[in-house]
């Protein structure tokens, strides 16, 4: 059963048809998934205070009900290393249409993956895992499975990616924590099984994986029928 709070967030987003990043991440966190530590604020003072608390470098992203793909409108700035640069990023974001504040969040390093869900007409909830980032639709190195995922499904998804050697530590690179990734995918799978009739699709992109954790750094939840 979905928590009341999650149902509330979905209902609230219903006129718009999709959830903005802060709400989407909130749902994921409530469901036991690891998301980046972030603050949603319209105040540059609060932003700098939070940046000091979590430590630079930080990431700044625009929050706007009119922007679904943030990078298309230069709504993401990575590697902000100090207050001055943070202030500049804030000004840049404020010029974007529908501006409702910014997200300030910790920088996580690792391999960028995408995990996602689609409510398929013929097969119900299906889960996608692939090599993420903005180029995902170009390379399409993804694996798709019907939810709920079984342990063997996660294994075969990973094995079927062309880029799977990267995940295992290609040429001296650090291998990612398969355990954290598996845990995340299974939790995501349980969550999406509750979304039938409510949610149309979800992108967790990117999910950044390193040797110790797999963490969702951006999320988008599109409601059913949107």
């Amino acid at each position: 059963m979905l928590k009341e709070e999650i149902l509330g967030l979905l209902a609230e987003a219903s006129p718009r048809g999709w959830l903005m990043e802060p709400q989407a991440k909130h749902i994921l966190r409530l469901s036991g998934l690891d998301v980046t530590r972030f603050l949603w604020t319209e105040s540059v003072q609060e932003a700098t205070r939070f940046a000091a608390e979590i430590g630079y470098p930080v990431v700044v992203k625009v929050v706007s009900p009119e922007v679904i793909h943030k990078s298309d409108v230069s709504g993401v700035v990575l590697g902000i290393s100090g207050d001055k640069q943070l202030g500049e990023a804030f000004e840049q974001m404020r010029a974007i249409r529908g501006f409702q504040g910014i997200i300030v969040e910790e920088t996580v390093r690792g391999t960028e993956l995408i995990a996602g869900m689609k409510m398929d007409l013929q097969f119900g909830p299906v889960i996608m895992l692939g090599i993420g980032g903005t180029a995902v639709e170009i390379y399409k190195d993804v694996a798709i499975r019907m939810a709920p995922l079984r342990g063997q499904d996660v294994e075969s998804m990973l094995a079927s990616l062309k880029a799977h050697p990267f995940l295992e530590g290609y040429r001296g690179a650090e291998p990612i924590s398969i355990e954290s990734l598996t845990k995340m995918l299974l939790a995501f799978s349980s969550l999406v099984m509750e979304f039938e009739g409510k949610v149309g699709s979800i992108d967790l992109n990117p999910v950044i994986c390193n040797a110790t954790r797999c963490i969702i750094t951006d999320a988008r939840i599109m409601l059913a029928g949107s």
Binding site: W18, I114, K118, V126, G130, R220
Partner: peptide, 11 residues
């Protein structure tokens, strides 16, 4: 289609 997943995971 506005999500990458819905766009890549076609029928």
């Amino acid at each position: 289609v506005k999500s990458h997943t819905a766009s890549i995971a076609g029928d």
